[in-house]
């Protein structure tokens, strides 16, 4: 990586936690401002999420780091768990994470999976996939009904629930959410601000829908059983729900 200008803070999802990457030369004022700016666009479902802070930054003193932690905890309700060293293995840049996935699959016999360390080819693969899908992301499958009090977070991509999401249950994903059942609870797609995310359910009767920073609730008196597939997405700065007939 060359001297491309880094964003001051970068927010990434990893499994069900968040990772904040702070640029090496940023001052505390810059960092605080950048965090506020970044968080302003986010939904409200992230409270309670674990966040790891990756400090490549050496300009911030311990005291200033604590200020950042306080800001994240008290204003946004994030549970700051550990501060990762920028040099640490766990927080390589995104490129390497993709490689890790390939590496995990390396023992499968598919020839494509053995191209570890061949980024050019890998990228080609992405390009091909891009023709079919708007984005390349991971998917988390939930193969059961989510009951009241259960929360499923996946901050690295899309979520598919093979079951219902009951009232009092919550599903949160950074990408799309697809419920192959009845969505009665709360769903938050695009939880890191991706407003192109959609929510699809076989039966869409949610308590509340959130996409990015947008929130909506169904009009009162919405029939309990819709008997048709519907999709919720952002159209002109509002969530709209319509019959599903392809993206």
């Amino acid at each position: 990586m060359k001297n491309v200008s880094h964003p001051i803070v970068e927010l990434k999802g990893f499994r069900d936690s968040l990772r904040l990457i702070i640029a090496p030369d940023a001052s505390i004022e810059q960092v605080e401002l950048a965090i506020k700016k970044r968080m302003a666009n986010l939904g409200y479902s992230l409270a309670g999420t674990t966040m790891n802070i990756d400090i490549r930054n050496e300009t911030l003193s311990d005291e200033e780091m604590n200020r950042v932690k306080m800001l994240l905890h008290e204003t946004y309700g994030l549970e700051v768990e550990r501060l990762l060293d920028g040099m640490g293995r766990e927080n390589e840049p995104a490129d390497n994470e993709i490689h890790e996935t390939v590496a995990d699959w390396a023992n499968e016999p598919t020839p494509n999976r053995k191209i570890r360390g061949a980024p050019a080819l890998h990228r080609e693969e992405n390009v091909i996939k891009n023709n079919f899908l708007p984005k390349i992301e991971e998917v988390r499958y939930i193969r059961h009904t989510l009951r009241s009090g259960q929360v499923e977070r996946f901050l690295e991509g899309n979520m598919i629930v093979l079951g219902d999401v009951n009232p009092g249950a919550e599903v949160i994903a950074t990408g799309d959410i697809i419920v192959l059942g009845v969505l009665r609870g709360v769903a938050h797609a695009g939880a890191l601000g991706d407003t192109s995310s959609v929510i699809i359910a076989l039966n869409l009767v949610p308590t509340q829908l959130r996409i990015g920073q947008f929130i909506t609730r169904p009009p009162s008196g919405r029939q309990a059983s819709r008997q048709k597939v519907e999709i919720a997405r952002i159209r002109e700065k509002a969530i709209i729900v319509e019959d599903y007939s392809g993206l």
Partner: peptide
């Protein structure tokens, strides 16, 4: 709602 929670 509570019954659902208990079932879980």
């Amino acid at each position: 709602r509570d019954a659902d929670r208990i079932i879980g």
